[in-house]
Design a protein around this nucleic acid. Structure first.
Lengths: 340, 340
DNA sequence: GTGAAAGCGCTAACAA
DNA sequence: TTGTTAGCGCTTTCAC
C-alpha cells in the first residue's frame, strides 16, 4: 500500500496524491475530492521513512534520562512526551541507569537513528561526550549544565530563587540554624544547589555552619544516611533543606527512626515537588520545579535548534516556587537549648 | 555523508561498502580493510531510514502506557527499554493518561510510524481499538487481557498463584477475616485480581465477606478512600490484600489517620513490589511482579510475532512471589472481639 | 492543473 | 571478488 496504488485507483499520478496530502492547493477541487475518497477508503497512511529519507528530518527526538524510575524524571518524561505529541513528533527514550557507558551508548543510538535533536539529562557528564552529536548536526539541549555552544542549549533551574524563598520562609518562622542535605558529593548539579543554599543564607542574614551540611545521593537511602549523620551530632539545625524530594523522604524516614517529630522538632523542606510529596507523612513542604515548564523549555529549544543547527544555543531559566505543606513550622523554643 | 562517498574515497562501489558493513564475507580482506579504514576515518554511520524503507522493518517498537509516573509502569518502561537496547532496537513511547482518546491517538501514531510491534498496556480497552494495528500487520502484545488472536499475544500475570501465597501466609499467621481493596470498579484487570482473591480464600478454607471488599482506583487516593470506608464499618477484617502497592500506600495513610496501628491492628499486603514499597512505614509486605520478567516476556513475544505476523499470538504467564516485610503480622487477640 | 522523472541512502539480484 | 542497476515510497522540479 503506497501512493502509487492510491494514484492508480484515483486515476491520477502519485504526484497529485502527494499534493493532496500536503494540501498544496494547486489541485482542482474535484480531483482532490476523488483522491481523498480513495485515501480514506483504503485507510492510506503515508510511509514516514520515505519522507525522512528525502528530507533528512525524522520528526523524532531522543531523550536520554539517568533513571526513569526516579519520579522527577518520569514526570518529566511524561510531560516531554506530551509536548512532542502535540506537534506530531515522536520521542525515542534512553535510560542510562546513571552509568557512563550506557550514556555513551545512548548517544551512539541517537546518532545512528538520526534523531532531529536530543534532550540530554545527565549534567554530570562533560561536553566531549556528546560532541559527536553536535558534529553530526544533531542539536542537544541539556539540563542545568549552564553552558551553551553551537547547537547546544541549556535549561537551567533557578535554584537561587527557590532557595531564597525557602530560607526566607524558614527565617520568618523563626529558624536560625538551617542545614542542607545535598545530592552526590562532587556532582556539579549538587554543587549548584548547595551554593544557592549558602547564598540564600547569607542573603537572609543567617549563619552558615558546615556541620549542618551533609551529602546524599539524590535518592532515599542517601537522604536517610545524611539525616542520620546529622542527628548523630551534638549540635543540629532546627530545619533542613534538601537537594530533592527523595532526599527529603529519606530524611523523614531517618527522623522517624530516631523518634524526632516532624515538623515540631525538625522542619524539612524538599525540592522538586514530585507526586508523592503530598502523600508522605507529614505532607512535604517543598520547592517546586514545574516539570511542565521544564518540558516546554526543552521542547522549545529543540525546535529552535532544529530550524537552524548552525546557531549557538540559548539558555532558559526555570523559576522555582515554594509549596507550603506541613513538614515545616516554627521551631520549638526548647530545641534552641536542647541542641546547641 | 553516505555510502557513495565512502565508496568513492575507498575506490570501490557502494555495493562493496554495503557488503563490508554487513559482513557478507565475500569481500577480499584487503579491500574490506581499506573500506573499513575510510569508514572509521569519516566516522560514517549508515542511515537507518534507507534500510527501513528498503525492508519495511524499522527496528523500532512502540510502547503504550497508561501513566508513566506510576512506578509500576515506569519500572516496566525502564526494563523494556533495557531489553530492546540490548538488541539494538529502539522504543517509541506513548503515554495515554489512561484516556481513551489519547489511547486511540497513540495507536494512530504507532501505525503512522510503522513500528515493528506494539506493547500495549491498557487492558481496559477493547480489541477493536487496536484492530487497525493488526490489520496493518503490526503485532500487538497486551498485558493481562487474557486473549490472543492472529498477531495478538498476551502477557498474563498469574494472580491466582500470588493471591494464594498471600492468603496462605495470612492464614498461617492466624488471620480469619481478610479483606480486599480493589482497583477501579468495573475494570477487567481489577475483576481478575478480585476473583483470584476470592478463589484463594476458598482454597484456604476461609470465608468470603463482601463487606470486606472495597473498590479503589489503582492509585493512592483510591486506596485511602477504600480503607476509610472499610474502617467506618462496624465489622472489619484483620488483614487486607490490595490490588496494587499504591492502593496499599493509600490504605496505610488512612490507617495512620484513623490511629489504627499497622501491622498490629491491621495487616496490609500490597501487590507489585514497586521501589517505594520497602521504604514506606512500615515496609510493605507485597506480592511481587517482576518487571524484569514482564519486560522480557513482552520482548520475546514481540520478536516472535515480528518474525511471522500471520501467526496467532501466544499467552505467557508471569509468576508472582510473596515478599515478606513488616506490614503483616499475627492478628491481635482483642481485635477479634473488638471488630466483630 | 497534472504528470513524468529524478533522487533521498541503502541493499540484493544479476552481470561481469 | 566486485560493479551495475533497480527499487523501497515519497516529494518536487520541470514540462506539458
Amino acid at each position: 500500500m503506497n501512493m502509487r496504488k492510491v494514484a492508480q485507483l484515483a486515476g491520477v499520478s502519485s504526484a497529485t496524491v502527494s499534493r493532496v496530502m500536503n494540501g498544496s492547493g494547486l489541485v482542482r477541487p474535484d480531483t482532490a475530492e476523488k483522491v481523498r475518497q480513495v485515501i480514506t477508503e483504503l485507510n492510506f497512511v503515508p510511509n514516514p521513512h520515505a519522507t525522512t529519507l528525502k528530507y533528512g528530518r525524522s520528526q523524532t527526538f531522543g531523550v536520554i534520562i539517568p533513571d526513569l524510575t526516579n519520579p522527577f524524571y518520569s514526570e518529566f518524561a511524561r510531560d516531554l512526551e506530551g509536548a512532542f505529541v502535540e506537534h506530531d513528533q515522536e520521542l525515542l527514550i534512553a535510560n542510562t541507569h546513571s552509568d557512563v557507558e550506557r550514556m555513551q551508548h545512548s548517544i551512539q543510538r541517537m546518532l545512528l537513528r538520526r534523531v532531529d535533536g536530543v534532550a540530554l539529562l545527565a549534567s554530570e557528564y562533560e561536553t566531549e561526550r556528546f560532541e559527536s552529536l553536535i558534529r553530526n548536526r544533531i542539536p542537544v539541549v541539556t539540563l542545568d549544565r549552564r553552558k551553551t555552544a553551537k547547537g547546544l542549549s541549556d535549561v537551567a533551574i533557578d535554584f537561587e530563587s527557590g532557595m531564597e524563598q525557602a530560607v526566607r520562609y524558614l527565617r520568618e518562622l523563626g529558624h536560625k540554624r538551617i542545614g542542607f542535605l545535598g545530592g552526590g558529593a562532587g556532582i556539579a548539579t549538587s554543587r549548584v544547589r548547595q551554593e544557592a543554599f549558602v547564598r540564600a543564607l547569607r542573603a537572609a542574614g543567617l549563619g552558615y555552619n558546615e556541620k549542618f551540611v551533609k551529602a546524599g545521593d539524590y535518592r532515599i537511602p542517601g537522604g536517610k544516611r545524611a539525616m542520620s549523620e546529622l542527628l548523630s551530632q551534638r549540635s543540629r539545625p532546627t530545619a533542613v533543606l534538601t537537594a530533592n524530594d527523595l532526599t527529603a523522604f529519606g530524611a523523614l524516614s531517618a527522623l522517624r527512626d530516631h523518634g524526632v517529630r516532624v515538623p515540631e522538632e525538625m522542619s524539612v523542606i524538599g525540592c522538586d515537588d514530585i507526586i508523592m510529596s503530598d502523600i508522605v507523612e507529614p505532607p512535604l513542604t517543598t520547592i517546586r520545579i514545574s516539570r511542565r515548564d521544564l518540558a516546554k523549555a526543552f521542547y522549545g529549544l529543540l525546535r529552535e535548534a532544529d530550524k537552524d543547527v548552525t546557531r549557538r544555543g540559548r539558555q532558559i531559566s526555570i523559576e522555582q516556587k515554594l509549596v507550603v505543606r506541613q513538614s515545616a513550622t516554627r521551631p520549638l523554643k526548647r530545641s534552641r537549648n536542647g541542641a546547641a
